[in-house]
Each structure stands twice: as structure tokens, then as C-alpha cells.
Design a protein around this nucleic acid. Structure first.
Lengths: 263, 263
DNA sequence: CGCTGAATTGATTAACCTCAACGGGGGTGG
DNA sequence: CCACCCCCGTTGAGGTTAATCAATTCAGCG
């Protein structure tokens, strides 16, 4: 793990949603933190816990996992650069923050975020925008669970993860690690593990996505995005990737690659 | 409509989640606003609209309604005292703010909320808490759609509405207007209108709730809460109502009434 | 009185769940 | 090194929930 690793993750994330100056980035470098590791399905933050630290995800995936439902519904998934518990004084009632696969996190004192927000309007805006995006994400997920079938849900989940990874400079080739179990996917999509299995198989058969040995390869992004009815507007990205839900019929969409310029 | 009507609605709401001083309440009385009326299913705020005003709901119900799904998924429902678009610089992508039944709203300039937040830490906290509650609500609703059947979903919706109404001094007798159509209920619960009808009938047959001529009467709150697996913690109320999901077997729960003290 | 949107009902079909069983891979202890 | 085990993925069969289609009733309203 190289120097400034934690700083870079956060900076990449913030820069993806707001315009930051050199001075802003400089503020971030003063971030105090301690690094910790967790194994898959370990609990980082338990329901109702209070903490004066926030959890900056550096590597792997985290999720909020409901404790009241028998299946343990997953309500959000996070990628490196995210801060799942940023705005919360306490963790959401009835939900645990859990690791999906092995993860590396940085615990950052909460006052640091208040401080940089008070020192830089741009950063303050970016942090506020993070909360908005979180809420928009939840709304979007709600629409998925409420009105779409399992194939669409799963496809949408992979679309969102792929895009959010790309935004922070990961998964450039549409390949990314997926240490989730199929039961994890089921818990996120609100379906049974058995049906999750059959859904994955269907995606494989359609040749849009392959999930083997804890690694996902999106083989046909436009098709996947179309299948998922994926529209990335809700992520409020500064440089949105073409979703190509309906590419011109005369040409297969190859614009996806070229329309993306990551820092 | 009496003097201070709009002010009272907001004050009641804020007081239900935070401790406000006389000085705090005094700040609220200076709220500038203009009142407007909308008929059922009219759109108050269209997807992507920008506005320098927030929408304080005074009477009736509002909801965010998704525009991308054919069924028009409802992602949140609001009761008098709520400010659906408080934290947003713009309305959520792909969602319209719509009236459920006839409504009265007060449009309040956004700067007013920034101002009172900067003048009073208690109000600032209360407003922040509103956002947290909003997110918690979305998470909770997500769990419903992801892991519970239609009967539970519908029951939960009525539980939440009933409780939120009571918190702002309405529906004290567990009766409240429900100008929703059954299709609205369906859109909120992520089920078909036909199935919504059968779900309501089931609730009626179980004798927990009656919905007739645009009016709902909860006839057996403990049973309804149990059916809905309703736990009001996520609403972060200062004086939570007993949810009585599992009342002592020796006594039917009558504590519901007595445990609530509204201003 | 007829019109219109909403509520209701029945019948059929599709999506998904549950139960149950089996196979493979990676760890662990002998 | 092998035997064992456990978790995970996979498959099949049967049952349940809810969607869809279509028709009928009902209520408010000009």
C-alpha cells in the first residue's frame, strides 16, 4: 500500500462529483486515519453503534445489511472511495455495515470532515452532494425492487457497480472482482439464493456478463445497460458515461469507451 | 385557514424530532411563504426542475413518483409538516413530486432554511436529522419491497402514515383521510392495482383496518403493527409510540394511546 | 340519465420460493 | 498425502404469490 493511498481514494471520489482546486486537494492530504482490515461478512459497524469515526473504504466492497429481515436485505453497496457512514451521527437503526469480500478501510475522525467542509465551500458542496447521491441511489434501488424482475435487478446492480468503480479509476476494462456470494447478490436484489443462481446463469447465457471465480467480466456493456434499463443520471457524475440504452439502430454502440475520460 | 397555520405545521414537525427553545420557535415565525393548492395527481415539481423554493406540505399528501417505470413507482410519501425537497438543489432525477388527493402547500424560499440553520444549532440539527430520517425511511421501505409480501407492505405503509400523522397532531383516533386510489397504493407497494385491491380486502377481512370512501380507520393497531413488522425506531421520534410488535401475552396492549404525548 | 374513473371479481399464466439433493473446491486434522 | 467437512454453487420438482387479461359493478358528477 503506497503513500497517500487513502488520500487518493477520497480525492478521486470527490473529484468525480465536484470541481476541486489544488487548495481543496491539499486539505485532504492532512486527513488523519488508521487503517484496518476485515474479512468477508465481518461486521464493521453494528446497528445502533455510535462512533466518532467515519469509515472510508479503500479496497473491496462494503454494504449496509438489514438485521430485521430473515434474508438480511442489503440496502446499499459501496466501492473504494465511498464513506458509508458519513452523514450519520449513529449507524442506521436495524442495519449493520458489513464487508463483502475482504476489505481495507480507513477510519477517519468525524471532525475532519466537518473541518474541511468549513474550510472549503467546494468540499462542503461535494460532501452534501454525496448525501444527495446516496438518497438518489436508494430511490433508484427502490424502483428496481418495486417494479422490475430479477434479471433486470441483477443487471442493474452490476451496471451500477461497474460504473462506480470506473469513476474512481477502477474496472476500466469492464472487469472487476466480485467476491460476493450468490446469496449476497440475492440479498441485494431481494430474491432467493436459488433464483439468484438462475438469474446469473441467464445473464451468462445472454452473453452480457460472466461471473467466474470471484471475478466479473462485462462482455457486452450496451446490452447489459439496456437490459438493466440503466440510466446513470442519478449518480450525478461530472463526466457521465454513455448509457446507450437505445443506440442508433444503424450502428452498434462503441461510443461507450470513447465517451469516458477519467482523471 | 388560521393565522400561523404554515408556521405551526413546520414547528410541530421539527419539535417531534428535536428539542426546540422558544427562541428557535420564534425564528420559525418569520418564515416567508406563498400558499398554493393542487388537485390529486397534479405535479408540483417536475423531474429535473430547479427552484429556489422548498415545498412545505400543509394539508394532504405528497409523494415522489418515478417517471421511468411504467407503473410510476412511488418512493416516498409525505404528510403535513414535511418538506419533501428540503436538501435538494434540484429535484431527484427521474422523479416527480405529485399530489395524492387535494393538497395545500407553502412555498418557502430556500435561503430561509439556510438562515435559520445558521442562527440556531438546534434547528440545524433538526434539519439534518430530517435528511437522516428520509434516508432511513428509504432504507426501510427498501427492506419492505425486497423481503416482504404485499400484505405486509401495505400494512407497513398504513402504519407509517398513521404514526407520522399522529406525530404532527393528526389522526389521534387512528382515523385519517386516504384520498389515494388503490392504484396509488399499488405504486407505493410495488404491486399491481388488482392485487392491491385484494390486499386491502384481506386487511379488511382480518379486521385490522377499514378503508372506505377515502377514509381509513385502523381498528386494531397492535395487530396491524404486528402484521407489518412495524418498528418505528427508524423515524427517530423523540416520543416513540409503542409499536407493540409482541405485547405481553397476558394483556392486550392498550399502552399505545397513553404512551404518546403530543404538544 | 348516461358518462367516466375507480373498485371488484374470476380465470389464466408467469415469476419466484421452498425443499431437497448433489457436486466441487478449499481448508483442516490425522 | 489423504480423508473429511463445510460452504458454495448447481439442479430438479412442486407449491405459492402475484401479474395479466377481461368483464362487471359501483359512485360521483354534469
Amino acid at each position: 500500500m503506497q503513500t497517500g493511498f487513502a488520500y487518493t481514494k477520497l480525492a478521486n471520489h470527490l473529484a468525480s462529483i465536484a470541481e476541486l482546486s489544488e487548495a481543496d486537494l491539499d486539505l485532504l492530504t492532512r486527513m488523519p486515519f488508521t487503517i484496518d482490515h476485515f474479512a468477508s461478512h465481518e461486521t464493521i459497524l453494528r446497528s445502533g453503534d455510535k462512533s466518532d469515526h467515519c469509515c472510508l473504504l479503500l479496497q473491496g466492497y462494503l454494504c449496509w445489511r438489514d438485521t430485521t429481515s430473515s434474508m438480511g436485505q442489503i440496502t446499499s453497496v459501496y466501492v473504494p472511495g465511498d464513506v458509508p457512514d458519513l452523514p450519520a451521527l449513529r449507524s442506521p437503526a436495524g442495519a449493520n455495515l458489513k464487508a463483502l469480500g475482504n476489505v481495507v478501510v480507513a477510519f477517519v475522525p468525524q471532525w475532519f470532515f466537518h473541518e474541511i467542509a468549513s474550510l472549503s465551500p467546494a468540499i462542503s458542496d461535494a460532501l452534501a452532494l454525496m448525501s444527495l447521491i446516496e438518497a438518489a441511489s436508494l430511490r433508484h434501488w427502490l424502483v428496481n425492487l418495486g417494479s422490475r424482475d430479477s434479471l433486470t435487478r441483477a443487471a442493474h446492480l452490476f451496471c451500477e457497480i461497474a460504473l462506480r468503480l470506473r469513476v474512481v479509476g477502477l474496472a476500466r476494462d469492464f472487469q472487476f472482482p466480485s467476491p460476493f456470494t450468490q446469496s449476497d447478490l440475492a440479498a441485494a436484489c431481494g430474491i432467493s439464493p436459488v433464483h439468484a443462481n438462475r438469474t446469473i446463469q441467464s445473464l451468462r447465457r445472454k452473453d452480457v456478463l460472466h461471473w467466474q471465480s470471484k471475478w466479473v467480466t462485462v462482455t457486452d456493456w450496451p446490452a447489459l445497460a439496456r437490459l438493466a434499463r440503466f440510466n446513470p443520471d442519478y449518480l450525478h457524475l461530472r463526466q457521465p458515461m454513455a448509457s446507450s440504452p437505445r443506440p442508433p439502430a444503424t450502428a452498434t454502440s462503441v461510443g461507450v469507451e470513447t465517451s469516458v475520460q477519467l482523471p
